[in-house]
């Protein structure tokens, strides 16, 4: 079946294939040689290889067959209330380990992968504490999350912590070129740079965008197609908004209102607008040093609005407020 998306097709099978996370890879490679693994905590932004690394460890320790009985993966699509932690995790951890499989280290412990652990309640995490203590001889825990602060300290302190970094453009380019070669996709000049720019260190997003663009261009990927499928706000829209905001006293509020409602009607994601607006404001090299305080104020407004949007505030009101506030900052003498 052709139906496997490239992100899955090119998911690293071995820890050594995980790109850019050298610290993690080196430590884990050594640990895998001796089959002596500490409890682990992986954290970092989306699409940087956390889940892939955990699954690769499991495969390398036990092989594809034994994995089924020795590894338990629980993620946010599984119910993980206190109840489940008590019952399911306990019965998995407490069960006896079977005979090893030939050709794999098969250490005498099991592996429990708790993916997306930041979505577990504090209570459930507390319940895990006991379980972890009780069964640490026969089970290794791998916690995975985006925000390490959401994992309670008593759990985090028992683990070796690894931060997964957003992928560097050059590293990302390497993976992308590898996939292009395998899939017979050609890249137009500049396409690689565009792809890195629009995916912000998230390799999964880069691969998904690449696959869509490749389908569109029948195997040829250009910068324009990438921008098209990646949800970027066109440069002239952002620069228009920035100019109106900075025009200070000269701008009537109605003009700002028109620009903002256009952004909303065009469906541009408000957070994307903020992000590009920030880049635009920061990239103005001709601005005199005297305008720095204004810029600082503008950046603060942008940050506050981004937070508001994340907790569900209205896009129109937030964007309008950003425009109004920046305009006010620049209008002030």
């Amino acid at each position: 079946m052709s139906g496997q998306p490239w992100v899955e097709k090119y998911r690293p099978k071995n820890v050594s294939e995980v790109a850019y996370q050298e610290e993690v890879v080196n430590t884990l490679t050594r640990a895998l040689e001796t089959a002596n693994l500490p409890h682990l905590l992986f954290y970092g932004p989306p699409g940087t290889g956390k889940t892939s690394t955990a699954l690769a460890i499991a495969r390398q320790l036990y092989g594809p067959e034994l994995m089924r009985s020795r590894v338990l993966e629980l993620n946010a699509s599984d119910e993980r209330g206190i109840h489940v932690v008590r019952e399911k995790v306990k019965s998995f951890a407490a069960g006896a380990v079977g005979p090893p499989a030939a050709g794999y280290p098969c250490p005498p412990y099991k592996l429990l992968i708790l993916d997306e652990a930041d979505s577990m309640t504090q209570d459930a995490q507390n319940a895990l504490r006991r379980t972890m203590e009780l069964y640490s001889k026969v089970t290794r825990f791998v916690f995975i999350c985006n925000y390490v602060s959401r994992i309670i300290e008593p759990l985090a302190s028992r683990c070796a912590k690894f931060r997964f970094k957003p992928l560097q453009p050059a590293i990302m380019a390497g993976r992308i070129e590898h996939i292009c070669e395998r899939e017979g996709v050609t890249l137009a000049p500049g396409a690689l740079a565009t792809l890195s720019a629009v995916s912000g260190g998230d390799l999964r997003r880069a691969i998904t965008t690449l696959q869509s663009a490749a389908r569109l261009g029948a195997g040829h990927v250009s910068s324009e197609t990438l921008l098209d499928v990646s949800g970027q706000v066109p440069g002239e829209v952002v620069s228009g908004l920035a100019a109106a905001c900075k025009a200070g006293g000269a701008t009537r509020f109605a003009a700002l209102q028109r620009l903002v409602s256009n952004c909303v009607a065009e469906g541009y994601a408000a957070q994307q607008v903020l992000l590009q607006l920030q880049t635009e404001l920061l990239s103005d090299r001709s601005a005199p040093a005297a305008s720095d305080p204004k810029l600082a104020e503008a950046l603060e407004v942008l940050g506050a609005a981004d937070f508001s949007l994340t907790v569900g505030a209205d896009e129109t009101l937030q964007l309008l407020n950003v425009a109004g506030q920046i305009n006010k900052a620049y209008a002030a003498a």
Partner: peptide, 8 residues
């Protein structure tokens, strides 16, 4: 969002 193609 990182898991989808987002179409505006």
């Amino acid at each position: 969002r990182s898991r989808c193609l987002c179409v505006r």
